[in-house]
């Protein structure tokens, strides 16, 4: 056999830009049946919560704040799950074999996923607000009262921030655990089991009660939901966020960069 011309690799070719990767990651969130329904569930869950409030709340209690809060609870579960699956499906469904051969710089993929999840989180919250506003208008009309708009713009923003932080907790669990079921269970442990343990500890130990807001992220982010945090509360979000978000996420990303994809 004749020898063919040598093949050279073009190292001057442009790489894959981050913007394109974000687009790809957004598309991946929608283009499976389960992903599509998960995304749609943002609107569905918001609508169900709105209807439930109209049915069960007293007409005089109706306010936009009530709707925003009612919708926020299921959102705090849906958004982190979206973030978790965006990361873990690369491992659980093994699509990472293609994703990481097309883009060997895993950090870019992880960054694109985080940005895509945050975009979805913010957009989802805005949609939820819109549905809540419609609920407030409709519900008040049904009850025969004037609609009450009691939530400040700042508070609307801090609620979005709280949800984005929750979403990033999901993202962190995703990169740490890299398994869909495991990370989702992890998120439920984080948001339901750990608060009761820490709450009990604070209840029974005085010294811990003072410490808790500084190290318990769940607890520290609560002021974001009502009214917005004070200066000290922002500092508490910072310190507890370092423990629950920044350090574990750094470790998780490091593990993703080092790990074997198979």
């Amino acid at each position: 056999m004749s020898t063919a011309a040598p093949i050279t690799i073009d190292t001057a070719r442009p790489g894959v830009p981050l913007g394109r990767l974000i687009k790809v990651e957004l598309r991946k969130m929608f283009n499976t049946r389960s992903g599509f329904w998960l995304m749609l569930s943002i609107a569905i869950v918001a609508a169900i919560a709105t209807v439930a409030i109209i049915i069960f709340a007293d007409g005089d209690d109706l306010s936009f704040g009530l709707f925003a809060q009612g919708i926020g609870i299921p959102m705090a579960i849906v958004l982190p799950v979206i973030a978790i699956l965006s990361v873990t499906s690369e491992w659980s469904q093994r699509t990472g074999l293609i994703t990481f051969t097309l883009v060997p710089h895993r950090g870019s993929i992880i960054a694109a996923k985080a940005i895509a999840a945050i975009i979805v989180g913010i957009a989802g919250m805005l949609i939820a607000y819109a549905i809540g506003a419609l609920g407030n208008i409709g519900g008040s009309a049904i009850a025969g009262v004037d609609p009450v708009w009691d939530t400040s713009l700042v508070n609307l923003v801090t609620i979005i921030l709280a949800n984005v932080l929750g979403l990033l907790i999901g993202f962190t669990l995703g990169v740490l655990i890299r398994n869909s079921a495991g990370a989702i269970v992890g998120y439920f442990v984080y948001s339901f089991v750990i608060p009761s343990i820490l709450g009990f500890l604070a209840f029974s130990q005085d010294w811990f009660e003072k410490l808790q807001p500084w190290i318990d992220f769940n607890d520290a982010t609560l002021p974001l939901f009502d009214g917005g945090p004070s200066g000290e509360e922002w500092a508490q979000i910072g310190t507890s966020g370092l423990i629950w978000l920044v350090i574990p996420m750094t470790f998780g990303i490091w593990a993703v960069l080092k790990s074997e994809v198979k």
Binding site: R13, N31, Q93, R94, T95, L97, I98, P104
Partner: peptide
């Protein structure tokens, strides 16, 4: 060239490692 140093590697090397490693729902 080391694989990670190849820009846009899919346009220079085609890789198939496991045909079953796909998102079943896509």
């Amino acid at each position: 060239v080391n694989y990670p140093d190849i820009p846009n590697p899919g346009t220079q090397i085609g890789v198939l490692l496991d045909a079953s490693a796909q998102h079943a729902g896509r």
